[in-house]
Design a protein around this nucleic acid. Structure first.
Lengths: 186, 186
DNA sequence: CCGCTCATGTAACTGGTTACATGATTTA
DNA sequence: TAAATCATGTAACCAGTTACATGAGCGG
């Protein structure tokens, strides 16, 4: 059952499925905005990614579209099918994969690994730049939670707190790298 | 100068360039092993990725190969050219891009965002699974540093400490999510 | 009416993936 | 000598990228 061999969802597919679950009924355009406005844009949210993706999901019957054209404007509003919800649930886990729980990739950490290739002066500049930018980002992440958006759902809030926690830990680590490049007790 | 329009390096290209700088002279095979054995394998280290990549680097003269065939076995050992080193340095930064310093993608965090789609019982199971696996990973990351490998260079060590720090912070966050889904003071 | 944003897509490309192919060298 | 591993690659595929195309609705 289920048409085409059911290979695993990509990260973006899972994420979009989740967004549709959250925002249904919603258009592909809305999904794009959500991805673009997310202040952690590892995905471009480009049209070239989203439209083919939702088309894929629709072909697999994980998603269905209510055609609601206003005037002469075509517009498709998507929502999960029962199969789509099952698929989302299965994608979420448990069980979790090693890929999911393992150390996530971090371009900054990768670069630090090769800091030895920079002339010493540049190393200091590198770390100073990193620290400054991260502090900046952190403040911008922590502030707007004041009163602007009451954070629709709990898990979105927790997700965001996770992002902040990661940035804090990363910042602290960079400081450690900068301060004691000697740091370790011996 | 510099042949082909010099577009930016991909993350993997930068990383491989760094590895060649570190291990030169070394073969493509060695690079693969390094990527495979790294206990954070976001890259497959597949032959299909590495060989074309180093060929690319060689065509751009960022890398040159000393042909050293032992017996009847062909073998190319790569090292950075001066241009390659310049390129590596430039890739490392400063200045850093937002992409580099920004919140890195984290599949676990993404999933937590949509935890609401799971039946409550599964939510608990999800979080328990996550915590268990992460604790397991952490212990395995912290242990072997005992005496086995004296950690060749400082920055490799710092890189690894960064990975551990990230995992710790993530674990703590997951605990927070699990313990107080009420957590916040209001 | 001009230009901007809304909204939906297509086309060409590309970097990385799995899977396969090939042969040399080492080990059981 | 058979099996495993070393070592170097190629071929087909695929998801996501940038860039472009098209047209409706709206504010000035």
């Amino acid at each position: 059952m289920g048409g085409s061999a059911m290979r695993g969802l990509t990260e973006l597919e899972g994420c979009v499925l989740g967004l549709i679950w959250e925002l249904a009924p919603c258009t592909a355009y809305t999904l794009r905005q959500e991805l673009l406005q997310s202040h952690s844009p590892y995905w471009s949210g480009s049209a070239g990614a989203i439209y083919p993706l939702v088309a894929r999901l629709e072909r697999q019957r994980l998603v269905r579209a209510k055609d609601r054209a206003t005037g002469k404007r075509r517009s498709k509003a998507y929502e999960l099918t029962p199969a789509g919800l099952r698929r989302l649930v299965q994608w979420l886990g448990p069980p979790l994969t090693d890929e999911t729980v393992g150390v996530p990739m971090d371009p900054l950490r990768t670069r630090v690994r090769f800091l030895g290739a920079l002339p010493p002066a540049s190393r200091a500049a590198f770390l100073a730049d990193a620290e400054a930018r991260m502090r900046d980002r952190l403040t911008r992440m922590e502030k707007p939670s004041g009163a602007s958006d009451p954070k629709a759902n709990l898990y979105e809030e927790l997700n965001e707190r996770g992002a902040v926690a990661m940035m804090r830990a990363r910042l602290e680590w960079v400081r450690e790298v900068a301060a004691g490049r000697d740091g370790r007790p011996r």
